[in-house]
Amino acid sequence: MHEGVMLMALHLDDIDREILAALTSDARVPLVTLAARVHLSRNAVKQRIDRMERDRVIAGYTLVRGTPAGNAVTAVVMVYRTDRMRGAGVVSALSRITEVVRCDILSGEFDLLVTVTAESMDRLGQIWEEIAALPGVDNTVTSVSLARVIDRR
C-alpha cells in the first residue's frame, strides 16, 4: 500500500476520536446512544466503527472483571525466572491464574511484570505463593497498590 494511502486510512477526525473515547469508557454503549452523542445516524456510526476495526484502530473489545464488594486488591509481582526468558512454562502457568490480568516481559533485572487483581489480601497471598512456587521462578518482588489515581482502561 502506498504510504499516502496508508496515512489516509488511519486518519481520525474529531467524531472518530469521540466514538473511540465513548467505546473506551464503555464498550457496550448502544449505537443509538453513540449516534445521538456525535450527531450522526446509527448507520454512519456503525460504518465508522467498522472502518476503525478494519484499520486496526480498534483491535478488539475486552471484559474488565469487577469484584462483588468493590474491594479488589491489586498488586504487581516482578518475577525473576531461572531460565532468563528461554522457557514458556512460567508464562503458560500464569495465564491459567484468572486473577492475573496482565503480564509483561521486561528488560533489566526482572523478567516479568505480573499484574494481579484479587478479591482480598488473603487471595492475593495465595496467588503470590502459587507464583513463587512455579517451576522456573527464582525470585519475586511484590508491591500492593494502595490507591489508584489514574485509570485509563
Rank of each mutant, 00 (worst) to 15 (best):
P68N: 10
Y80T: 11
G136W: 01
D111G: 07
T82L: 12
P68V: 07
G136N: 03
S95M: 11
N139R: 15
V149P: 05
D111K: 12
G87E: 08
S145Y: 01
M8H: 09
Q126N: 12
E18L: 08
I15S: 05
V77N: 03
T142L: 04
V79L: 04
D83F: 02
G125W: 00
T33F: 03
V5A: 13
D138Y: 04
E109A: 11
E3S: 13
A147N: 10
G87A: 06
V77K: 09
T62H: 12
D14R: 14
N139I: 01
D14W: 04
H2Q: 13
S143G: 15
L34K: 13
A147M: 06
W128V: 12
I97A: 05
R96F: 01
V149Q: 10
T98S: 14
E18D: 14
A9E: 14
L113I: 04
N71W: 00
V38I: 06
R65V: 02
I49R: 14
G60Y: 07
V29R: 15
L40P: 00
A132E: 10
E109D: 12
M52L: 12
R51H: 14
A75I: 00
T24N: 15
T82H: 11
L7D: 07
R56Q: 15
T24M: 11
V79C: 06
R56W: 04
R86T: 12
V149K: 14
S143P: 07
D111F: 01
T142P: 08
T142K: 03
E119L: 00
R37D: 10
L31P: 09
